[in-house]
């Protein structure tokens, strides 16, 4: 038994080396991937992307630790062939230090994830919504298969292009005329379903100038299946400076 135990500690040292190499490779690849992240065009997009990238770092680490243990032990403890039926000396049914470590880590990571990025991200998103004194209200009407935008306080109605100023929080008021849709601008990092017989709000603070033509992530896209026109239920987006926005409103209001 003693000999078998020593052997297992030696195997564990090999696993640690395997883990270190795996973590180095995995997290380097992840750093490269996150370095090539698509554009983040609003404060909300930064919050949701923070959550995603944090969880990516963590997922790579857990994948290497757990998956590495599977691969390593399957390789290290393999028999030479199917006909090699001798049983190993090590027949323990459980080993408390391993089980307890696993349990503590699993519960700990879960609690931590619920707090960050889960609740922290939600509180940040809700905080923007609550702190906004004077949001720009835009009525969004979804129907099969087009988007219509109205700016009630500016007197601009029924335009098919979404023009918004940079740096001001917008209150999108979402309604649908027929079936369920989903209002999503990929670059703004959040989406909201539009539900019949209900009114929904989505708060976005654009931080980056641009148009759909310069970056396709900056587009309104229906993100909930709504029939055969669903893929083309898009609308162009234009984020402009506050001065340009004023000029646009003056040209388009009645």
């Amino acid at each position: 038994m003693n000999a078998a135990k020593e052997n297992l500690w030696k195997a564990f040292r090999g696993l640690v080396v395997f883990w270190i190499i795996g973590l180095a490779i995995g997290e380097t690849l992840m750093a490269w991937g996150i370095g090539n992240w698509p554009i983040l065009g609003s404060i909300q997009a930064h919050i949701t992307a923070d959550a995603t990238t944090y969880l990516l770092w963590q997922a790579v680490a857990i994948y290497v630790l757990v998956g590495g243990a599977v691969v390593y032990s399957a390789f290290r403890f393999r028999a030479s062939s199917m006909s090699d039926t001798a049983a190993p000396a090590y027949q323990a049914r459980t080993w408390a230090p391993f089980v307890v470590t696993w349990l503590v880590l699993a519960i700990g990571i879960n609690l931590a994830n619920t707090i960050y990025p889960g609740m922290v991200g939600l509180e940040q998103l809700w905080g923007i919504q609550l702190d906004t004194k004077n949001p720009l209200v835009i009525d969004v009407t979804a129907q099969q298969w087009k988007w219509t935008f109205s700016y009630p306080k500016q007197g601009v109605t029924d335009v098919s292009q979404l023009v918004v100023p940079e740096g001001r929080t917008i209150d999108f008021v979402l309604r649908t005329k027929d079936v369920m849709h989903d209002f999503w601008v990929p670059a703004w990092g959040e989406k909201k379903d539009v539900i019949p017989n209900e009114v929904r709000h989505l708060f976005i603070t654009p931080t980056m100038l641009g148009t759909t033509a310069t970056n396709p992530m900056l587009r309104v896209q229906c993100s909930l299946i709504c029939g055969n026109g669903h893929p083309l239920m898009r609308a162009p987006v234009k984020v402009v400076t506050p001065a340009d926005f004023k000029a646009w409103v003056a040209n388009n209001s009645f």
Binding site: A4, L8, A11, V66, A69, V70, S73, A74, F77, R78, A79, S81, M82, D84, T85, A86, A87, P88, Y90, A92, T94, W95, F98, V99, W102, A106, I107, N110, N113, T114, G118
Partner: peptide
């Protein structure tokens, strides 16, 4: 998120079973 805790027990059990064994791989 809590579901990942009992799901993890499956991996705990599987890794612990292979560890120190003589795995015949077909």
């Amino acid at each position: 998120e809590t579901v990942s805790i009992p799901t993890g027990f499956i991996y705990l059990s599987a890794i612990g079973t292979i560890w120190g064994g003589r795995l015949r791989i077909n």
